[in-house]
């Protein structure tokens, strides 16, 4: 009996060791990978939650974690430069980097790519499929399981869109003018045929100067902008001033890179965004 228990323990520990160690750089990728791999791989955030990915520098402990991974899933188009720059410099021997956006038709302006493809449903699904395929190549035994989970997760994400699509079904959205505090929501809005007419912040999280704010207020008035989408979990005092001066309706979207890492974060926060979008576009 003792031997049997020991054997079971050895087998269990071997099975745990055989699990792929998959690193992620940003919160949405935690949700994507967790939903793809289920309990058949370990999902490890490269950095703790609470850090601003725009200006983070990897610590020696992060680099040690990086070296222990089998795969690292990256946004790779500018939102996790703290990781991609380090990976390109160090080129860890046993690490497979999964470029989640490699198949996404990217949008942007002035040759600058918009890196927020994770604040979206369709671009998120495209990334989920790319990640699932790459993980399936690393772990052939679980390939079918990963791909099936990816399709199930895609179905769940698509279903989030349905109530909003129905709410907007008979509405003419062609005259809706939208402003956004930064460019994070362009992919999501585009899924509903909407484009952003004005972006307020000169860079993510950087408040506009007094003269930039004045220009923005003028733009909002001149272009008859109806709605301003701004970011939840970020202090934007100047938004209140814009509201006072222009009477514009303000709605808060999640950027999905705050809080604890969790498998259901994308679902939860995307539902919030879609609810707010439907609310904002009601006549």
């Amino acid at each position: 009996m003792k031997y049997l228990v020991a054997l079971c323990l050895i087998l269990a520990s071997h099975s745990a060791l055989a699990h792929l160690q998959v690193g992620i750089t940003l919160h949405p990728y935690y949700s994507y990978v967790a939903n793809i791999v289920g309990d058949r791989a370990d999902v490890l955030p490269l950095i703790d939650s609470g850090f601003n990915p725009h200006n983070y520098q990897l610590s020696p402990a992060d680099i040690e974690r990086l070296n222990s991974l089998d795969a690292l899933v990256v946004n790779g188009i500018g939102h996790d430069l703290f990781a991609t720059n380090t990976v390109e410099r160090l080129q860890p021997k046993h690490l497979t980097v999964i470029w989640a956006n490699q198949d996404v038709p990217l949008i942007g302006h002035d040759e600058k790519v918009n890196a927020h493809s994770f604040v979206s449903i369709d671009a998120a699904i495209r990334q989920v499929y790319t990640i699932a395929k790459a993980l399936g190549e690393l772990d052939a035994e679980n390939k079918t399981y990963f791909l099936r989970n990816a399709m199930d997760y895609a179905r769940t994400l698509r279903a989030l869109k349905t109530p909003v699509q129905q709410a907007l079904l008979n509405q003419d959205l062609s005259n809706i003018r939208i402003a956004s505090t930064h460019g994070a929501y362009a992919y999501l809005l585009q899924e509903f045929g909407l484009t952003v007419s004005a972006i307020i912040e000169p860079a993510h999280g950087v408040s506009p100067t007094a003269s930039q704010l004045e220009d923005t207020i003028q733009t909002i008035r001149q272009q008859n902008i109806d709605v301003l989408f701004t970011e939840l979990n970020m202090e934007n005092h100047y938004v209140d001033l814009i509201e006072q001066e222009t009477g514009i309706k303000i709605y808060y979207f999640s950027h999905m890179t705050h809080g604890e890492y969790s498998a259901d974060q994308v679902e939860r926060e995307m539902s919030h965004n879609l609810r707010k979008l439907a609310e904002a576009l009601q006549p």
Partner: peptide, 29 residues
């Protein structure tokens, strides 16, 4: 060298391209 290239497809069609790309992935699976 590190810059990611933007698609030549107009921005307003990129969501259609994304949906089609998703359909291709599903068809192959």
């Amino acid at each position: 060298g590190a810059q990611t290239k933007l698609s030549e497809l107009p921005n307003q069609l990129s969501n259609s391209a994304t949906q089609i790309s998703n359909a291709i992935a599903e068809l192959n699976m």
